[in-house]
Design a protein around this nucleic acid. Structure first.
Length: 158
DNA sequence: GCCAACGTTGGC
DNA sequence: GCCAACGTTGGC
C-alpha cells in the first residue's frame, strides 16, 4: 500500500467538504498537470492512503487523511465546455485527464504545518523529510508520493 | 497583493 | 527543437 499527499485550497474544497460529502467520497477532478495526472492514472491504487494538505491559506499544512476508493478514470469535466477546467484538447475517445475518488478517513488532531515540516527537513538533511517534494523550494506539484518513512514520521508529529 | 518558480504555448 | 512570453501555483 502506497501513500500520497494531495493539495487543495480549503476555500475551494477542504477536508471539511470531503467529510460532508455523501459517502464522504469525492472525485478529484480538475487536475491539469501531467505529472499529477500520471500518478492518478498509473500509480494510485484502491486502499492507498493520502495526506490531505491545505494550500493557499494562512497556515498551510496537512490537516487530515483520506484513502483512494476508485482508481484512475477519465476526468469528464474536461469534456464539458461549461466546466471550470474544460480542456477542448481532451477527446472523450482519448481522454487527456484522469482522476481518482477519495474517501474521507479522519482529521488529524492538529495541523502539521508546512513551516514545521520544512524546519524538520532542514534540521535533518539526511532524514526522510528532506526528500519530500513539498518542502523543496519552488515545488508546485499538487500530488506527490510519500514514502513509508515519511508517512510514519509525519504521523508521529500529530 | 506580491512575486519567485516553474509549466506550457507558440513563433520561428 | 529552441526559447521568449505568458499563465499558474502557492508561500509569504
Amino acid at each position: 500500500m502506497a501513500h500520497w499527499l494531495m493539495k487543495s485550497e480549503p476555500d475551494a474544497f477542504g477536508i471539511d467538504d470531503l467529510a460532508a460529502r455523501p459517502s464522504q467520497t469525492e472525485p478529484w477532478d480538475g487536475v491539469r498537470n501531467y505529472q499529477a495526472r500520471n500518478m492518478m492514472r498509473d500509480a494510485m491504487r484502491v486502499g492507498d492512503t493520502v495526506f490531505f494538505y491545505h494550500s493557499n491559506t494562512k497556515a498551510p499544512g496537512i490537516v487530515g487523511i483520506a484513502e483512494v476508493v476508485r482508481e484512475g478514470y477519465p476526468d469528464h469535466t474536461a469534456f464539458d465546455p461549461d466546466a471550470k477546467y474544460y480542456d477542448p484538447k481532451s477527446d472523450p475517445s482519448d481522454p487527456r485527464w484522469f482522476m481518482v475518488d477519495l474517501k474521507y478517513v479522519r482529521h488529524l488532531r492538529r495541523t502539521i504545518t508546512l513551516t514545521e515540516l520544512k524546519a524538520l527537513g532542514q534540521r535533518d538533511p539526511d532524514g526522510p523529510l528532506a526528500d519530500l517534494p513539498l518542502v523543496r523550494r519552488g515545488n508546485r506539484l499538487s500530488i506527490m508520493p510519500v514514502t513509508e518513512a515519511q508517512w510514519a514520521l509525519i504521523l508521529d508529529l500529530e
